[in-house]
Amino acid sequence: MSADLATDTALRSRVEDFLYAEAALLDEWRLDDWLQLLSEDARYEVPSTDRPDGRPDTTLMLISDTRPMINARVTRLNSRKAHREFPWSRTRRIIGNVRVLAVETDGDLQVTANFAVYRTRSGRTHVYAGRYRYRLRPRGEAFQIAFRRAELDQENLDEHGTLSIIL
C-alpha cells in the first residue's frame, strides 16, 4: 500500500460508506437494488474453506459467479421456491478494517475488509467470518463493484450447512 493511500482518509471514508451501504442492501434483502451496484462484467467468488487461496480455473470453489450467474442467484433468492431462504433468514453484516490497498492503472481500487456475517434462522444463529477482496470502479463520487470475493476463516461449513445467502 502506498503511503498516499494509507493516509487518504477521505478516499477510505468513501469506500467505507459504500461498503456499509452495500451491506445494508443485503441485510434488507433489497437484492435488485444491490445488483445495481455491480458492473456488467462483475464476478463474485467464495473459495472452498480448505483452499481460501483457490481460483476458479484451478480449484473447486464454493461460489464462482459471472455477472449472469449473479443475476440468476438473485432471481432464485427472490423466489418463494428457494427453500433454504424462504422465508428469508435474518442477516447482520459487520464490516471493518477497511483498507484501500492499491489503485490499478485503469483506476480501479483494490480494497480489503474484514467481515462477520451473522445469519439467523430456524432458532439458530451462525457466523461467517472472513475477509472481503473488492475491486471497485470509481463512478463519480460512488463506485461500481467489478469484483467481490469473500474468503472464509471457517475450516468447514459444519455450523452453517450451506452458503445460501450472498456473503
Binding site: 464454493l62 461460489i63 450467474m69 452453517h160 450447512g161 450451506t162
Partner: peptide, 18 residues
Amino acid sequence: RLDSFLTFLGPGGFASPD
C-alpha cells in the same frame, strides 16, 4: 467443468442448499 459443478452442487450452488 467446475462452474458447471457449482451451478447445481455444493453449499453455495443453486440446488444443494434446498
